[in-house]
């Protein structure tokens, strides 16, 4: 039994990509909270959504491993967001153009 065991000193470490992605996400979180307190007038909301999109992109590309995936899988991942865009675009069109 003890012969099979690995030496205690060796601790498994995740790859640098994952660690960097994690640090990046927490940094962006700090950034978006800080920026939300700055008087950017009507830009606060676009800034918050852009940072959210970057964070989502990081999660998708690195944690969800999309950067290693084929075009078909990426298309599947994008499909939901594409159709969400249709829903928001045509759904909001009515409310934005009412007179």
């Amino acid at each position: 039994m003890s012969g099979i065991r690995r030496p205690k000193s060796r601790i498994w470490r995740p790859s640098t990509d994952l660690v960097l992605c994690w640090i990046g996400l927490l940094t962006l979180l700090g950034l978006t909270v800080t920026l939300s307190y700055q008087p950017l007038a009507s830009f606060n909301f676009p800034v918050a959504m852009t940072i959210a999109a970057i964070k989502a992109g990081l999660v998708a590309a690195i944690f969800m491993e999309l950067r290693h995936r084929s075009g078909v899988v990426c298309a599947f991942a994008a499909a939901g967001f594409f159709w969400l865009a249709i829903l928001l675009w045509l759904g909001l069109m009515d409310f934005l153009t009412r007179v």
């Binding site: 939300s36 700055q38 008087p39 606060n44 918050a48 959504m49 959210a52 999660v59 998708a60």
Partner: peptide, 18 residues
Amino acid sequence: DLVWIFLFALIYLPGRNS
């Protein structure tokens, strides 16, 4: 996690600077 990232931006961040 990804859903929460967007919910966080929609729920917690509006109106903080005023």
